[in-house]
Amino acid sequence: MRTQQTSFWVDHPLGRALLGLAGVIAFVAIWKLAQATGWARAGTIPDPFRLPQTLMDEWRSDRLMPAVLSSLVHYVWGLGLGTVFGFLVGALAASSRWTDALHAWLARILRPIPPLAWVVFAIAWFKVSHAGAAFVIAIGVFWVNYFATWSAVRNVDPKYYELAQAFGQQGYLNQALNVVLPASAPGILSGMRTGIGQAWMTLIAAELLGVPGMGQEMNAAAGVGAYEAVVIYMLVISLVYTLSDTLFARFEKRVLQWRPS
C-alpha cells in the first residue's frame, strides 16, 4: 500500500473546516453571480446578499417564530405518534406468526399510499388544523418505523432465542425485554432516525394545505415573489432538522454503546 502524505487541508480539523467554508462561499458566489449578471432571469432567483436583512424582517414582523413554533407542534405530535404506533404495530406484527399473517395483506395494501394522499381525509376529519397536519406527518413516520421495527425484530439471530431457552429465560416478556428489544435496537433506532427526516419532508408539504407554519409562510412568500423569505424558511428547516438529527444521533450512540465503534 502506498502511504499517503498527511495534509493540513484534509487531515486537520481546522483545515477541514476552512475547506468546508470555502465550499459554501463558492456556492454563494456562483449564486450571486447568476443573480447579478442576469444569467438567471430577473425575479426568479433570490439575492443571497439580502438574506440577513430578510431574516431580520421576518423576525421583526413576528412571522418567523410563530411559524417555527407552529411547525414544531405539528412535527413533535406527528413524529411522536407516528414513531410510537409504528414501533408498536411493527413489534407486535413481527412477534408472532399469527399477527404477522393477519396484518401482511393490510400492510401491503396501505403502505404504498403516499402520506400526502391522506391530506384529503386529514381535511375531512380534522378540518384545516394542527391535528390534520400532524396526522399527515404521522402517517409517513408510521410506515418508516413500522417497517424498520418489523424487519429488525424478524431478523433477531435465532441463536439468542436458543440461549434464552438454555438458561430458562424464555418467558414472552422476559425474552422481549432482554433479547428481542436490545437485539433489534440498532434497526429500530435507525428507523426512528429516518423518521425524523421523513417527518420534515412531509411537514412542509402538509402545511401547504393552509395550516399555519413554515410551509404556509413559504407558500405565501412565494405567491408574492418574496424568494428571499422562502430561502430563509428553507434554511430554518435545515437548521432545525440538523439539530434534531444531531440530538438523536447522540441518544442513539448512548443507547448502543455496547456496539464496537
Binding site: Y160, L163, G168, Q169, N174, N178, V179, P182, A185, R259
Partner: peptide, 20 residues
C-alpha cells in the same frame, strides 16, 4: 460460539441465567 449477549456487560452476561 460463546454466545454472549453483546448488549450486556460481562457481569450481566454471567448473571443471565439467575433470573427466576
Amino acid at each position: 460460539d460463546g454466545r454472549l449477549l453483546p448488549w450486556r456487560r460481562l457481569r450481566g452476561n454471567v448473571g443471565y441465567g439467575l433470573k427466576g
